[in-house]
Amino acid sequence: MLDITGLRAGYGAHEVLKGLSMRVGKGQVVALLGGNGAGKTTTLSAIMGLIPSQGGEIAFESNSIQGQPAHRVFRHGLSLVPQWRELFTDMSVQEHLELGAIACASRGDLDARVASALDYFPELRAHLGRRAGTLSGGQQQMVAIARALTARPKLLMLDEPSMGLAPLVVRELGRTIKRLNEAGTSVLLVEQNMHLALGVASYVYVIRAGKIITHGPTGDFHDEKELFHSYIG
């Protein structure tokens, strides 16, 4: 579904990704693990078209999406829930859910889209009228994911969704990701929380210094400690 080969990208003259290759198959949950500054967020930003890539190839469902700006990448069916959530602080939860689908061609079923997104996060139903800026961190994460879901993406990319969340909430998040996947959404999960990642992913990539250093089915990475050392180096 998503095929990346030899991707090079970075910020200005600073190259972060130095020939990264990975793939996400249809219906898979793939985890991309790595330490701080390894290039995880850069990878997602480059896929989504938020930053330009300097080389390599990104293809989604056999179409090249490399070099396309975010709003065009979005149209192919990719959604990114960014690390900092990037909510609209003064808009209500309801508005966020509706906005998620605002750029979609068929919005006649907007209510259905909102309802099915809310099915994953029933807690939000009680807060539909609240401004996003007044919600707790966990609720904001829910809004960010739900906003992405109303677009009905084929591939959902999550950037460290567990960051700043209580362990209980993280566990709930893991269950939600599984349910999403069961409903047919492919997921690319970027995490530092190995426990969450290994719990939901079927395939794991480990990134260090802008390159994939190892990858394989989740079963190959039973020893969390060993895995941890592999990307810390």
Partner: peptide, 15 residues
Amino acid sequence: RATAQNPTGAKLIGI
């Protein structure tokens, strides 16, 4: 409004 409040967030929802 969305773009005004958060341009990155707006790009991510296809605006």
